[in-house]
Design a protein around this nucleic acid. Structure first.
Lengths: 343, 343
DNA sequence: ACAATTATTGACAGCGCTACCATCGGATTG
DNA sequence: CAATCCGATGGTAGCGCTGTCAATAATTGT
């Protein structure tokens, strides 16, 4: 015969059905569509399941039904707090649904992303959430061959693979700089770390706002590809000061850098915002709490996660949104660090 | 007949085998154990796979082989930075192996944990990593019925389900307090948020160290079950000051709280460490960068993640470690915030 | 040169579940 | 009262892959 006998202890759906006195297919329906069963059978199956301690075999289910109830989520980093909030939204809105979340981490590697997408494809997820809009041609091809709804999150742009939820990093960067300019600052430095595509677009917002005010100067810019840390904020700021000692404001591409700048100012006895205005990005929780409180651009990360999942589930279940691209915008949270007059 | 014809475009292993001129089972072996094939067949299968764009069906594989190559990781939070580091270790050491990581988030809910473990069980993972040692009886039963290696991480204790990697939170808390006592502080406050089991044990370390010095006083303690934030650190500290105005040090169960306390001191013009010594826990990156730099207890989170996976894979592949419990210890990172004399 | 061993390969059956259709009793209708 | 419909249930036939073991080819030793 084929293979060794099924372990005696193993409970299959057949056993459950037998005990409940129904056919296997009825027992199967108990899990997928209990309303379709008569109350009496439903109860009989239910107690049989409990009595035998039946655990459905997901692989068999997936094989027979050609689908799974997994939503894949591909993000570039777990260390970056930004994604923690997105994921909270994702988990919150998947809870209560039949779908379970499977998380994958590219660590900002294009190759890793392709590999993960390939892995997901082999698993036939019900839907997929991916970060950003700068997938490689190869990744995009995989996504398009995937035969399931896909939501791109964190930013919006032209030609979505399928759906998108995000905001314009360019606009957000531009708005931040406009605000600083309004405060009367003229020499606004730019501090950037891990220049991923979204950070790059924030930079473009900075650049264009500065150019529009005829204040653009390459000396005001310090960037690195190194991952962001608070300490790095201090280091980069020191570099910036060395190359442009006359700066009166700094725009940091994220809040960790901004906090690092604040600490460095404290170390150098520079007053914030008196000597220097600081504006961060993301509006992490600590920004409001710092002394002085730090201005930042709030991005609706939690909502992004929520909407991404909601839209995805709707699409999976055939209720496609009429508008595939959802712009969640941003809010400039103006605080002490960028309002010199209030000091 | 059974069901509608397989979609014409669908490539199965059989098709690959046919094109390569081998039997399906040989093609199958190409994926699982390529060394077993002769070089010529290996090349033939390889090019057939590429030509047809074959994507293996993981569900079928899992069903036929009774296993998967998934390592499940169950953690209580993604918002908490602590786990980001653990996960970095997990991902780093799973990379290059055949196993892929599946992450699940209990959000500190016991029920959610049980639900997730049940889900994992139905998926027959190759191995499982779970956080902490305080599983419910039910969760523990699921883990034990799981028929795969299990590693508990973040802390160590008696009677592991299988393996453990972590450190003693009690000892760490005790050591932190001992250090503060050595600095001459006597009225050491305790600030705690989200009192999960590990935080609870840090508290016990605090309590016993204080009792040993005959300095224990319930008025020195402020805790809440609310999740941790920097802002909360400030709030709790204000409460603490109200109830014990004469404190000369604070031990915070995590670094976010400690940062919040520092900001609150700045707001109140209290000098750190002159008026108040501050010690945090976890040694997140920003602690070294704060002004003054903040003392903390460094926990080897990255290494915890790495070892958890390494041990797990070894166990999966039959190379069980001789010692199932690995204590990674901790280091007290003494900085300005707790060394008054150096100010 | 021949048996003994080892490396490759293949045939077969079936993993546990569900899609598809058929069935069947009973309620509804004209 | 037959015709119609509908909700509940079941039978059959795989889904795509791999475990088992047997068969064959290649290699080695004596």
């Amino acid at each position: 015969m084929g293979r060794k006998q099924t372990k005696s202890g193993k409970i299959r759906l057949t056993e459950v059905a037998k005990l409940a006195g129904v056919s296997p297919i009825t027992a199967s329906r108990f899990f997928r569509n209990p309303e379709a069963l008569s109350l009496s059978k439903r109860e009989r199956v239910d107690s049989a399941v409990k009595e035998l301690g039946y655990v459905p075999n997901l692989a068999a289910r997936a094989l027979a039904s050609h689908r799974t109830e997994v939503i894949g989520v591909v993000i570039p980093s777990l260390t970056n707090n930004v994604f923690a909030d997105v994921l909270r939204g994702v988990y919150d809105s998947s809870e209560g649904s039949r779908y379970s979340i499977q998380l994958a981490n590219t660590r900002y590697s294009i190759l890793q992303e392709e590999k993960l997408l390939r892995l997901f494809r082999a698993q036939k997820p019900a839907g997929l959430i991916v970060t950003g809009i700068n997938q490689t041609t190869e990744s995009r091809a995989i996504l398009e061959s995937m035969n399931c709804p896909v939501t791109q999150i964190m930013e919006i742009g032209e030609s979505p693979v399928d759906m998108m939820v995000g905001f314009s990093h360019y606009d957000a960067g531009f708005a931040a700089i406009s605000h600083i300019l309004e405060q009367g600052c003229r020499r606004i430095g730019f501090l950037g770390a891990r220049m991923d595509p979204r950070v790059q677009r924030r930079f473009e917002g900075y650049r264009d706002a500065m150019k529009a005010a005829s204040l653009f100067d390459p000396n005001l810019i310090v960037t690195t590809s190194v991952p962001t840390t608070v300490t790095l904020g201090g280091t980069l700021f020191a570099d910036l000061l060395a190359q442009a000692p006359d700066i009166d404001a700094v725009f940091c591409v994220n809040d960790d850098l901004a906090l690092g700048v604040l600490f460095e100012c404290q170390r150098r006895q520079m007053s914030v915002p008196g000597d220097l205005a600081i504006v961060g990005f993301n509006d992490l929780e600590f920004m409001a709490s710092a002394v002085p409180s730090l201005t930042s651009v709030r991005t609706n990360r939690y909502e992004m996660g929520r909407h991404a999942v909601t839209m995805l589930i709707d699409a999976i279940e055939g209720r496609r949104p009429r508008e595939p691209v959802l712009n969640l915008g941003f809010q400039l949270m103006v605080r002490e660090s960028s309002t010199p007059q209030s000091t």
